[in-house]
């Protein structure tokens, strides 16, 4: 992927974020209960600007729920979730972008999906064409621009979903297992894309089961176990000396339930 893009000095490439940034995001004692079942319990964590946070934990631990809460799609049943910019409004929601575990692409071409996003994110009309080419290049999808998005391979769909999220020029990018099911080459491409997003000044939260990937990318690790945060530590110490039996078991490939 071309590094020229990262340094081309466009508005979206400025690493420094304005004072209206949603970051840091803080969850304090957050619980989420549905139909009497508590799915998240007393979750406290910090998302700091410029640091990549990996959320790890077994299937069903509540990682995706956490992302939905951060994005403002769900409200905590107890506790507080605060964004530096205040309560998340409709416009505020555009400061945060999510790539879902199963991304939903519109029934349009690759370029059509990006155009829709640019419009939805209120990018001024005059800037859209340039950004479209930029995003297509970033995802290495220029050759497929006119292909229907829904017939792309999973790797291509993931790349498209990530650059679609970047069309928001978000402060915070939430990625839910973006490389599950991808081959090593496609995984590398996504990781490069994540680094490029960071170079654009985007703060990334990454849910992943790939320990190697978390080691490569993460600055901080949040470990969730059955709806509770059992660790939030800098990545190095998490992998080298996990503090809890659950995290140690998870890293060793044993599932504790």
């Amino acid at each position: 992927m071309s590094d020229a893009l990262v340094t081309s000095g466009r508005r979206t490439l400025t690493p420094a974020r304005g004072p209206d940034s949603v970051l840091p995001v803080a969850m304090d004692g957050v619980g989420y209960t549905i139909d009497g079942v508590t799915l998240l319990d007393d979750v406290s964590l910090r998302i700091r600007p410029g640091r990549l946070t990996a959320i790890m934990g077994a299937n069903g631990a509540g990682k995706t729920l956490c992302l939905r809460l951060i994005q403002g799609l769900l409200q905590p049943t107890v506790g507080t979730l605060s964004h530096a910019s205040g309560p998340v409004t409709l416009t505020g929601r555009r400061r945060i972008a999510t790539v879902f575990q199963r991304p939903v692409l519109l029934r349009r071409s690759v370029a059509g999906n990006l155009r829709h996003a640019l419009k939805t994110y209120r990018v001024p009309r005059a800037e859209r064409a340039a950004m479209l080419t930029d995003l297509l290049d970033l995802a290495e999808l220029r050759a497929l621009a006119h292909r229907s998005a829904r017939v792309l391979s999973s790797g291509e769909q993931q790349r498209l979903s990530i650059v679609r999220a970047l069309a928001a020029d978000p402060d915070l990018l939430l990625l839910d297992e973006p490389t599950a099911n991808l081959d090593p080459y496609a995984t590398r491409m996504i990781e490069t894309l994540i680094r490029q997003a960071e170079a654009r000044g985007v703060t990334v939260v990454l849910v992943t089961h790939d320990v190697g990937q978390a080691r490569r990318l993460a600055d901080d690790v949040v470990f969730l176990n059955r709806g509770r945060v059992t660790e939030q530590t800098p990545a190095g110490s998490f992998f080298d000396e996990p503090q809890t039996a659950e995290a140690a078991a998870y890293l060793a490939g044993r599932l504790l339930l």
């Binding site: 994005q71 799609l73 409709l90 416009t91 505020g92 929601r93 555009r94 972008a97 999510t98 879902f100 991304p103 939903v104 996003a117 939805t120 994110y121 928001a168």
Partner: peptide
């Protein structure tokens, strides 16, 4: 969910 996440 996709559209709501985009703040549409």
């Amino acid at each position: 969910e996709q559209l709501r996440s985009m703040g549409i």
